[in-house]
Design a protein around this nucleic acid. Structure first.
Lengths: 352, 352
DNA sequence: AACAAAATTCAAAGCGCTTTGGATATGTTC
DNA sequence: GAACATATCCAAAGCGCTTTGAATTTTGTT
């Protein structure tokens, strides 16, 4: 294939002896063009390497075929790796549908301004909202701006006026907690994510309800909440194990801090699963996944409640594209249940 | 501040009683406009919330103010977390300069086509090349296409005809290897990245040279090469420790597999730093970083050669923007030395 | 064969910006 | 004060696409 220069509509229409109108319509699938000319046009477009200019099309239509992802550099000025996997999933769907990702970094405070600008500039056809807080003001703003969006997660109790896709965090943590209690654990710690985040809030609710159902009063000392990084898990665990009555099991919000938990236990000469049980929420982060060809899958290390964040990215992207096609359609939402997989880090508590 | 609708150039110029030409020039800093009118224009633009349409500007100028990052979903269909941190750094610089990120996912094979399309479509003003292979064909293509780019890493021995920013991987691994040898280790394993990647190649060279300088013949059995995920480190270590003569020290290409190494050792009842020494390359991935306010920094766990990939992202972005401003300027390149930090995972070898 | 209806096609007017090639006003020089 | 240079500003022509409203062909009917 000769690497030819791209041409524009005018050239293509001249080459075909047709008007730009007809060519444009043929290419964009309008009905009022004869089928035989359509194939002729498409063939020629292919052959002559015609590529419609996105900026011209965008100027004319007001659509950009871009999806905005504005991600916040959190406290630790980081993009967390969960985002990388989410975007891997979403990007796949976008690619299949001719959309591109516009990535913008902004602190949470800046985000409203960013959304305003994106709308004013018509830079994106839609956005996905990451890391919704409980009572997140971004949602009201986006509704007011009329920009299609879907939320990864939820913002409030009965999210009625926006599209969302979420994992049933409350139930997942309820199940995990109950599992530990059933094993005989009485002191179960929660190393949670940042509880301003709605998902962390729900997880805590699931945890507390399960305790209460077992007649156990939640103990403040067993609760931690912070950004889900490895050192957080480490420090939280060190603090927990320093307690007069340390926990015999720890529920962790992500495998990232869970690795820190494991490291802390190792430092103390304790073994996860034997001395202290661990259940982590596992987002199936790819860099922790074993994908060796031909090898049988590992027995998972962590006992975990598991839900692929990559799949979530795919689904959210699909929902957003649907919403963009049909902005006035009904508001979709989807709640996924997490899997519960037994790994090597849970066992009945040690005898005291 | 009233949340007003954005207006366009025509409205703004009418409001000012000036021509669009003058207003445009005033805003874009052209010299042929009186200073007093310029301030008047700027003030009005601010007040009336004028926002130039990016697609119109792009159509008129051919510039998009977007930077393309095309990232490959590697073997394991993942975006690796190194990328997240790189983009966090780069995004900061872009933001300060009014550029946005266009993110595209594509397998390595697809990438050339993607670059062609990006150029034809004038979608981006420049791109950064991630994960260069030894003898990477993308570089020649981009030069042929005339699209400004800078490579994060290098592609060949004497990278002369392109911009790049790289870490001195060879020296870093030479130092790390020598350090282990000086401690008395004789059998040092290398759990390397994928050696089609140029950086992994260089690291291996550094490692082998150091061995040879010490009169040690590299042992094939001690060499592993794969994508840098956690389970890889685990499996490689299990294999290494199964050898008749297992290594007493392991050099690991990233903290990700290094965590797998640690886990494998723990499974075997061995302690990193006591039974087996580990040195990892540490990209300062943010989710492993301890950033607790007011707390004194941890003693690093891994002994490591360290270089912030986030800072690399910043620098690469700066270099690219410079290149875009001045495409015919001299080709810049920059080689950073990695830090060598002593952590808790190195010690002289155990007596046999 | 004549005529209305349906199917195709087209010319031209935007979309909102930049930029060329003047026009107009202001200053300078002798 | 004429003649020219300089500083400001402007009208209009794109950039490459979509889309409106009208023109042209084709088809179907009697």
């Amino acid at each position: 294939m000769p690497a030819r220069k791209a041409i524009n509509l005018k050239m293509l229409s001249e080459a075909l002896g047709l008007s730009q109108t007809t060519v444009s319509r043929a290419l964009n699938g309008f009905p009022e063009v004869a089928e035989k000319t359509r194939v002729r046009v498409i063939e020629a477009a292919e052959r002559l390497n015609y590529r419609p200019s996105p900026s011209a099309a965008s100027l004319a239509t007001g659509k950009s075929r871009m999806i905005g992802h504005v991600v916040s550099l959190s406290e630790h000025i980081m993009i967390n790796p969960h985002f990388a996997d989410f975007i891997a999933g979403a990007g796949e769907v976008y690619g299949e549908n001719g959309y591109d990702i516009l990535l913008r970094l902004a602190s949470l405070e800046e985000q409203e301004g960013v959304y305003r600008d994106l709308v004013d500039d018509q830079r994106v056809d839609g956005v996905v909202v990451h890391g919704p807080l409980t009572g997140d003001s971004r949602i009201g703003l986006l509704n007011a701006l009329g920009l299609p969006f879907v939320v990864h997660g939820r913002s409030d109790e009965e999210g009625a006026d926006y599209c969302w896709m979420d994992v049933n965090n409350r139930r997942a943590f309820h199940r995990a907690t109950k599992f530990l209690l059933d094993l005989g654990h009485q002191r179960v710690a929660l190393v949670n994510g940042l509880e301003t985040m709605n998902f962390a809030d729900r997880r805590r609710q699931g945890y507390e309800v399960a305790l209460e159902e077992a007649g156990i009063v939640p103990d403040e000392q067993l609760l931690h909440s912070a950004d889900m990084v490895e050192p957080y898990g480490y420090h939280a665990t060190r603090a927990l194990m320093d307690l007069a009555e340390p926990p015999t099991a720890i529920l962790v919000a992500s495998v990232l801090p869970a690795m820190g938990v494991t490291r802390a236990l190792a430092d103390l000469g304790l073994r996860a699963g034997e001395d202290v049980s661990i259940i982590a929420f596992d987002d199936c982060l790819s860099f922790l996944q074993s994908g060796y060809k031909g090898r049988t899958p590992d027995i998972p290390y962590f006992t975990a409640v598991r839900s692929s964040i990559r799949d979530a990215g795919k689904r959210v992207a699909q929902m957003l594209l649907e919403r963009i096609e049909n902005p006035s359609g009904p508001l979709q939402s989807e709640l996924w249940e997490a899997d519960f997989v037994i790994g090597q880090t849970t066992a009945p508590p040690r005898r005291r």
